[in-house]
């Protein structure tokens, strides 16, 4: 077996308004080898087949996929907002590429800044984000952003933005301003 640098936890969120938010977010499985990642990936639904309101999150073991976790509190996310029609053409490729960036430690020494990644399945447009631990670490955030954008194969004119969780949390409409863009 080929060990990964970290042990990762796959989480699943299903929006059930009758239950507290945190109860809707559950860890599905943990793995720390390349082989076990693929066994998991093959076993679960593709992101594009999930119902609206659901999320997958992949986070390093020990970090919860929420702003409140102390490893996320000062951090932020590189956010990719997809158009509705991209669910059927690009979402699964972009999410898998995101997973491979994380598992392969693609951000060099800044991979330790990465906390995890989230895909939100939403009627108005799906989102994919890479969460990092320190929004003020401009060098790390920018390196991750440049590598991530290149790996996703986005054109130069496509702009992705980085938002601090503290700014997102302060906005009820989730339109936090971009702290950085690539």
């Amino acid at each position: 077996q080929h060990p990964l640098h970290y042990r990762w936890v796959l989480w699943f969120f299903k929006n059930d308004r009758s239950r507290p938010w945190q109860e809707n977010l559950q860890p599905v499985t943990r793995f720390n080898t390349v082989e076990d990642f693929w066994a998991t990936y093959r076993h679960i639904k593709l992101a594009s087949k999930l119902s609206s309101g659901c999320d997958y999150a992949l986070f390093k073991d020990g970090i919860q996929p929420m702003w409140e976790d102390y490893r996320n509190k000062r951090g932020g996310r590189w956010l990719l907002s997809l158009a509705k029609q991209q669910r059927h053409t690009e979402l699964d490729r972009l999410w898998l590429e995101t997973l491979l960036c994380l598992l392969g430690e693609s951000f060099e020494e800044f991979s330790q800044e990465v906390c995890g990644a989230v895909v939100n399945i939403r009627t108005k447009g799906d989102k994919i984000a890479v969460w990092t631990s320190e929004a003020e670490n401009q060098a790390g955030v920018m390196h991750i952003g440049h590598v991530y954008k290149e790996r996703l194969g986005l054109s130069a004119k496509t702009i992705i933005g980085y938002q601090a969780h503290a700014d997102t949390a302060a906005k009820s409409n989730s339109l936090a301003k971009n702290k950085f863009v690539v």
Partner: peptide, 20 residues
């Protein structure tokens, strides 16, 4: 050392049967 894998390496394992 750091376990760093490029995407092609990771993708090579996608359809391998699990080890027993």
């Amino acid at each position: 050392g750091k376990k760093q894998y490029d995407r092609e390496f990771l993708l090579d394992f996608q359809y391998m049967p699990p080890c027993i």
